[in-house]
Amino acid sequence: MSISSDNAQAYWRENLRIIMGYLAVWFVASYGCGVLFVEELNAISLGGYPLGFWFGQQGSIFVFVVLIWAYVASMNKLDAKYDVHE
């Protein structure tokens, strides 16, 4: 069974929106906090870490893990909504 072309388009657009949202977080957590604004964030200290340093060496990795699983959940819901799951 294949879905209608309109539905396929709508599914793809929603998928792209979801990806853009998560990648924005991905960018801010790694490039934003770990590279571009690392000096500013280092002025803040959290749990013994300068915050920018923590994002660069650990925080971003935790964010990455959460992002992938959030994406998995969002997509499972989207697949069910458009009835394209297997």
Binding site: G56, Q58, I61
Partner: peptide, 10 residues
């Protein structure tokens, strides 16, 4: 390296 070798999985 830490971010690069993990962020690629996203």
């Amino acid at each position: 390296y830490l971010m690069g070798w993990t962020g690629g999985y996203v």
